[in-house]
Simulated assay, not measured.
Amino acid sequence: MKLILTTEVSGLGAPGDIVEVKDGYGRNYLIPRGFAIRWTRGAESQVASLKKARAAREIRDLGSAKEVAGQLGALKVRLKTRAGESGRLFGSITTGDIADAVKAAGGPQLDRRRIEIGNAIKSVGTHKVSVRLHPEVAATLDVEVVAG
């Protein structure tokens, strides 16, 4: 199935990319959630203009993405949450929680969809989190989870 992505999908592509995916993945996941639309010749011409605008924006944003990555590297992020006596959390830390904690720590406003947590954060301690700021720039952020 040939689709045009409308939002960034991790591991698949960026908005405006034309991708070939399995029928079930496209029909049951990407299209209903608004992540993609069906490919047509008319939509392909719109994709060309989207890509041109995105390319101009990315060139301009590469320098600022590197600057934000430097800010995130120097930032100390602490999250207070409820935990049991053994250090296991009641629930888990989400990307939205991390985005809010970065903002509260004086960092830049981050889109929660660009934050990638390797393994679910379900315990107290320091955890590494990746933030995709640009297709060429990813920052690693240390998040300290404390019982509160």
Rank of each mutant, 00 (worst) to 15 (best):
T81K: 13
R82C: 04
G70L: 09
D111M: 02
S92K: 09
Q71E: 13
I115N: 07
G118N: 13
L110P: 03
G73Y: 02
G96Q: 13
V124R: 06
V77S: 09
T81V: 15
T94S: 15
G106Q: 05
A74D: 14
D97S: 07
A105E: 03
V124S: 10
L79M: 14
T94N: 03
K76N: 13
I93G: 08
Q109A: 14
R78I: 15
K103D: 00
R114S: 12
L79E: 02
G106S: 03
A83Q: 04
D111R: 05
L75I: 00
G91Q: 10
A104E: 07
G107Y: 01
K80H: 11
G107Q: 00
V124I: 13
A74W: 05
V77E: 01
A74E: 14
R88G: 06
G107R: 00
I93T: 12
R112A: 13
G70D: 02
Q109R: 14
A104Q: 09
G91N: 10
G118L: 11
A101I: 04
P108C: 08
G73V: 04
A105I: 05
A105M: 04
N119L: 13
A104K: 12
L79F: 01
G87Q: 12
A83R: 05
K76Q: 14
V102D: 06
R112W: 00
A104C: 01
A69H: 06
P108E: 09
K103F: 07
G87I: 11
D97W: 05
I117W: 07
L72N: 00
A83C: 04
L75C: 01
D111L: 03
S92H: 12
L89E: 10
T81A: 13
L75M: 05
E116T: 12
